[in-house]
Design a protein around this nucleic acid. Structure first.
Lengths: 206, 206
DNA sequence: TAATAATCGGAACAATGTTCCGTTTAATGT
DNA sequence: ACATTAAACGGAACATTGTTCCGATTATTA
C-alpha cells in the first residue's frame, strides 16, 4: 500500500528504463490536468475537498484519477511535491536573473508564500499517513541546496554574512510564519525583512 | 449551529433555572455512559473513531447520542472538558493531601499525562471547527487558577521562587511535552524535573 | 488498418456523519 | 395505583465521500 507515484516516463533526465510502450498521450495529459485541478481545488476549498470535485474539474472520471494516485493522500503528496519543485525551480531562475542579494531576498519571500499556502498540509503531515512519510525529506532535499547556493553567492559578493546554515534558516522562517496568527502576510513580510537585515549585518566580516 | 452542550441540570451548584420537569433519570445515565464510552474509545482508537462504535459501547442508539451531542465535534469537546475538569479537580485534591512542594510536583506530572493523552486533540483544535472555539479558554480558565494556587502555596512555604506566571509555565510544559518525539514519557518526565529544579533554584530569594 | 494492451469513465460498494420518526418510558397529578 | 404526557429511545434511512471494478474506448504499433 506504499505510495507508488507514477513518475512520468519522459523526463528531461529520461533514463528510458525499457518502456515497451511509452506512456500514452492522454495519460500524460490527464495526469497534468489532475494535478493542476487538485492544486486549484486545494487552495480554494482546502485539502479536504472531495476527490470527485477534483476529478470533475480535471474533466476526468474518478477511476482515471485513482489509477494515477492510488489514494487521496497520494494525490495530496504529489501536489505538495509539485509545488516544492516549482518553488525550488524559481530559486535557480532568480539566481540567474538578479544580483546575489536580490535573488536571495526574492526567493525567501517566495518561500514564505509557499509556506502560507501549505497551512492545511502541515496538519496532514503529522497525521501518520505513510503517503506523507517521505515529504519532509523531499522538502529538505530540494530546498536546502537552492538556499545554500543563494546564500553562498550572496556571501561571496559580500552582501551577507557567512556561516549560515541553510536548513536552520529554512526552519526559522517556517516557525516565524506559522506563529503569525493575526495580520498574516504583512506580519510575515515584516519579520522576514528583519531577518534579512540580520543576515546583512556583519556582512563584511571574514 | 453553535455547540449547545446540555449541562446537567442537577449540579452541585444547582441553580435551578425553572425546569418544569427535571432531567429524566435515563437521560442522565445515558449522558454519563456516552461520555465514558467516548473517553475509552478515543484513547484506544483515537478521536476519529466512528460514532457508532461509541454509541454501541455506551449501550445506546446513535439517535440518543446525537440528541445530547448535536455533532461529533461536540462530543469530542465534551470529553475534553470532562478531562480538564478531572485534572483540575485533582489539583485541589493534591493540595489538600500533600505539602505544597510535593503537591505542585505531583500535579505537574499529572498535567503532563493529561497533555500526552490529548495528542490527537491538538490537531483537531486547530481544525477551525466552531465546536472547539471555546476550548482554549476553558483550558486556561480551569488550569491557571489551580496552578496559581499550587505555586503560591509552594512559594509561601519557601519551596519555590516567586513571580512565576502560571500560564507561562502551563505553556512551557505544553511545548516541552509536544516536542518530545522519541522516548516519550521518560523524556518528558526528565525535562519536567529539570524544570521543577529550576523553580526551586533561588527559592530563598525574596 | 487491424490488433492489442493501456486507459477511461462512472456505476457500485463501503464506511461514516447525521436526521427522522414510530415506539417506549419516566415523571407528574389525581 | 393509574392515566396522561412530554421527553427520550433506538435504529432504519439518508447524504457524503473514499475506493474498487469492469465493460467500453482509444492511442500505439506493426
Amino acid at each position: 500500500m506504499e505510495a507508488c507515484f507514477p513518475v512520468r516516463r519522459e523526463d528531461e533526465s529520461r533514463t528510458e528504463i525499457r518502456p515497451k510502450r511509452r506512456m500514452r498521450a492522454d495519460a500524460v495529459r490527464n495526469e497534468d490536468a489532475v494535478i493542476e485541478a487538485a492544486k486549484a481545488v486545494f487552495t480554494s476549498s482546502g485539502v479536504d475537498a472531495p476527490v470527485r470535485e477534483i476529478a470533475a474539474r480535471a474533466g476526468v472520471g474518478v477511476g482515471t484519477l485513482y489509477r494515477r494516485f492510488p489514494s487521496r493522500s497520494d494525490l495530496v503528496a504529489a501536489v505538495f511535491r509539485h509545488e516544492v519543485d516549482a518553488c525550488a525551480a524559481e530559486g535557480k531562475l532568480l539566481a540567474a536573473k538578479y544580483p546575489p542579494d536580490e535573488a536571495l531576498e526574492h526567493w525567501l519571500l517566495r518561500y514564505t508564500e509557499f509556506l502560507t499556502t501549505k497551512k492545511g498540509l502541515a496538519a496532514a503531515l503529522h497525521s501518520g499517513d505513510p503517503a506523507f512519510d517521505a515529504l519532509p525529506d523531499y522538502f529538505r532535499a530540494n530546498f536546502e541546496p537552492v538556499l545554500a547556493s543563494l546564500l553562498e553567492a550572496a556571501a561571496m559578493a559580500g552582501e551577507v554574512r557567512k556561516g549560515i546554515e541553510p536548513y536552520d534558516l529554512l526552519r526559522a522562517i517556517g516557525n516565524l510564519s506559522s506563529a503569525s496568527g493575526e495580520d498574516g502576510p504583512a506580519h510575515v513580510k515584516r519579520m522576514l525583512s528583519l531577518l534579512i537585515d540580520g543576515l546583512r549585518y556583519q556582512r563584511e566580516r571574514d
